[in-house]
Nucleic acid binder design. Structure first.
Lengths: 150, 150
DNA sequence: AAAAAGTAGTTTCATTTGAAACTTTAATCC
DNA sequence: GGATTAAAGTTTCAAATGAAACTACTTTTT
C-alpha cells in the first residue's frame, strides 16, 4: 500500500528551521546595530563590504551583499547623511558612483567588527574546529543547492 | 602588538550566510505555495500544524510556528475565508477558538506535503544520512545558542 | 461581588519593503 | 551621428509588517 505522508513535523522541516534560526540571529544583531550605532542590517553589510573593498558601486555591492538596488539606494542615502559614506563620481560613468567609507565610517566599522565577530564566536562557542569546518561545508552545499532549485 | 581585526569577510560571516540561505529557500517556497495554492508561509505553517494538532488555538500556535499573534490572526482570517479552516468556539473560554482544518484544508495539506517534502529532499539530496544527522545536530545547537544570546 | 488586573485575539497606524515606473547617462544599431 | 536600446540609481506606490491600542472576555484581589 502506498504510504503517503499525512503530516509534516514543522520543527524538523529544514526551511522552517533555517528561517527561525536566521530570524533569531538577525533580530539579535539588528537590535545591537540599531541601538548602538543606528545602523540597519543593510547599512552594516555595505559598510563591512566597503571596509575591504573601497570604491565599489551600488551595482557591484548588490550581489556581494545580497541586497536589491532599492535597499542599497536607501541604505547609501542614510549612510551619506550620517557622514559615514562618501560618493565619488569619477567612474567614467556618470550614472554610478564609487563608494568610500569616510573617517567616521571607518571608525564605526572598527567598532562593530569586534562585536560582530564576538557574536559569531559565541554562536559557535561549542563547536570544535572540525565541526566548524563541517558546518561551513554544509552551508556552502545548501547554498549551492538552493541556488540550483529554481 | 594587538592584532585587531580591520575587516570582516561578509560571505563567511555566519549570520549573513544563514540569512541569505533562508531567504533563498523561503522565496522559493513562498513562490510555490503562493502560485499553486494561494497560501502565504504563515498560512502554510498553520495548516501544517493543525494537520497533526487539530484544535490548537491561536495562542498555542504562536510558539510552535514562530509567528506573532497579529500574523496568526490575519493568516487565520484568510484561511477561514478560503474555506480551509474552521473556528470552533467551545473552549470554555469565549475569547479564544479552537482551530480545525476543513475537508478542503485537509486536502490542501495533503497536496502540499509531498511538495514540501520533495523540496527538502532536494536540498539534502547530496547529504549522506550521517551528514544529514550531523546537520540536524548543528542546527539544534545553533538554535539553542541563539536562543541563549539575549 | 465589585473592582482591578490580566489574557486572547483584532484593529489601527506608522514603518518597511520591493516591484514597477521613471530619470539620467551610456552603448549599440542602422 | 541620430535613433534605439540598455543600464545605474532613484522615486513612487501599493502591499506586508509589527508595535501599540483596543475589545471582549476571564481571573484575581479585596
Amino acid at each position: 500500500m502506498n504510504d503517503m505522508q499525512r503530516s509534516l513535523y514543522l520543527p524538523r522541516f529544514l526551511p522552517y528551521r533555517l528561517t527561525k534560526l536566521s530570524g533569531m540571529i538577525s533580530r539579535n544583531l539588528a537590535a545591537k546595530y540599531s541601538t548602538m550605532f543606528d545602523l540597519t542590517i543593510a547599512e552594516w553589510r555595505i559598510v563591512a563590504l566597503l571596509g575591504s573593498n573601497p570604491g565599489l558601486t551600488a551595482r557591484e555591492i548588490a550581489p556581494l551583499a545580497s541586497l536589491d538596488k532599492v535597499s542599497i539606494s536607501r541604505a547609501v542615502e542614510r549612510l551619506v547623511k550620517s557622514g559615514r559614506l562618501e560618493k565619488r563620481k569619477l567612474d567614467g560613468d556618470r550614472r554610478s558612483a564609487a563608494l568610500y567609507l569616510t573617517e567616521a565610517g571607518t571608525s564605526t566599522l572598527a567598532e562593530i567588527i569586534p562585536l560582530a565577530q564576538r557574536y559569531e564566536d559565541q554562536l559557535l562557542a561549542e563547536f570544535t574546529p572540525e565541526e566548524n569546518e563541517q558546518l561551513d561545508h554544509f552551508l556552502n552545499r545548501l547554498d549551492a543547492m538552493a541556488d540550483t532549485l529554481k
